[in-house]
Simulated assay, not measured.
Amino acid sequence: MGNVWARNAALFVCVVGLASCDALPRSGPSKSEIYAGSVQREGDAFVVAVDDRVTRATAVVPALGFSSDFTGSGVVGSDTIHAGDVLGVSIWENVEEGILTTAGAPAGLQDVQVDGQGFIFIPYAGRIKAAGNSPEAIRRIITDKLSEQTPDPQVMVTRLAGDGSTVSLTGAVGGQGVYPIERPTRTLGAMLAKAGGVSVPPEIAVVKIIRGTRTGKIWYQDLFEHPELDIALRGGDRILVEADTRAFTALGATGSQTRVKFETQTLSALEAIAQVGGLVSTLADPTGVFVFRNEPAEISNAVLGRSDLVGDQRLIYVLDLTEPNGMFRARDFVIRDGDTVYVTEAPYVQWTKVISALSTTVGAADSLASAATTFPGL
Results as ranks from 00 to 15, higher is better:
residue 2 G to P: 00
residue 3 N to G: 02
residue 4 V to Y: 09
residue 8 N to D: 10
residue 9 A to P: 01
residue 10 A to C: 05
residue 13 V to Q: 09
residue 15 V to F: 14
residue 20 S to K: 10
residue 22 D to A: 14
residue 22 D to E: 14
residue 24 L to W: 04
residue 26 R to Q: 10
residue 30 S to K: 03
residue 32 S to W: 01
residue 33 E to R: 04
residue 34 I to W: 06
residue 38 S to K: 01
residue 40 Q to C: 05
residue 51 D to M: 10
residue 53 R to C: 03
residue 56 R to G: 07
residue 57 A to H: 10
residue 58 T to P: 06
residue 60 V to R: 15
residue 62 P to A: 09
residue 64 L to G: 05
residue 65 G to R: 03
residue 65 G to V: 11
residue 70 F to A: 05
residue 70 F to I: 09
residue 75 V to M: 10
residue 76 V to H: 03
residue 81 I to G: 03
residue 86 V to S: 12
residue 86 V to Y: 03
residue 87 L to P: 05
residue 90 S to R: 13
residue 96 E to I: 05
residue 98 G to Y: 04
residue 98 G to Q: 05
residue 99 I to R: 14
residue 100 L to F: 13
residue 106 P to D: 10
residue 106 P to T: 06
residue 107 A to W: 12
residue 108 G to A: 13
residue 111 D to L: 11
residue 123 P to T: 01
residue 123 P to F: 08
residue 124 Y to D: 08
residue 128 I to W: 03
residue 133 N to Q: 12
residue 133 N to I: 00
residue 138 I to H: 00
residue 143 T to L: 04
residue 146 L to H: 01
residue 149 Q to V: 15
residue 151 P to S: 08
residue 151 P to W: 08
residue 154 Q to H: 07
residue 155 V to C: 00
residue 158 T to P: 00
residue 158 T to I: 12
residue 165 S to E: 13
residue 166 T to R: 12
residue 166 T to L: 01
residue 168 S to R: 15
residue 170 T to F: 09
residue 177 G to P: 09
residue 180 P to K: 02
residue 181 I to Y: 01
residue 181 I to A: 02
residue 184 P to I: 01
residue 189 G to S: 06
residue 191 M to L: 04
residue 193 A to V: 02
residue 194 K to D: 02
residue 199 S to R: 11
residue 201 P to Y: 08
residue 203 E to W: 06
residue 206 V to G: 05
residue 208 K to Y: 04
residue 210 I to Q: 12
residue 214 R to N: 14
residue 217 K to M: 14
residue 219 W to L: 10
residue 226 H to L: 13
residue 231 I to H: 06
residue 233 L to C: 03
residue 240 L to P: 02
residue 244 D to F: 13
residue 246 R to A: 04
residue 247 A to K: 15
residue 251 L to P: 03
residue 253 A to C: 05
residue 256 S to K: 12
residue 262 F to S: 02
residue 262 F to K: 06
residue 262 F to P: 05
residue 265 Q to H: 13
residue 268 S to E: 08
residue 277 G to W: 00
residue 285 D to P: 03
residue 286 P to H: 03
residue 288 G to C: 03
residue 295 E to Y: 12
residue 302 A to Q: 15
residue 304 L to T: 05
residue 307 S to F: 13
residue 308 D to R: 04
residue 308 D to A: 10
residue 309 L to P: 09
residue 310 V to T: 10
residue 312 D to N: 14
residue 314 R to E: 12
residue 314 R to K: 15
residue 318 V to E: 14
residue 322 T to K: 11
residue 323 E to P: 02
residue 324 P to C: 05
residue 329 R to W: 07
residue 334 V to R: 14
residue 337 D to H: 10
residue 338 G to D: 09
residue 339 D to N: 11
residue 348 Y to W: 13
residue 348 Y to E: 11
residue 352 T to A: 11
residue 352 T to Q: 13
residue 358 L to Q: 09
residue 359 S to K: 14
residue 361 T to D: 01
residue 363 G to R: 00
residue 363 G to T: 13
residue 366 D to H: 04
residue 366 D to M: 11
residue 366 D to L: 14
residue 368 L to T: 12
residue 370 S to V: 03
residue 370 S to M: 08
residue 371 A to I: 13
residue 374 T to I: 09
residue 376 P to I: 06
residue 378 L to D: 00
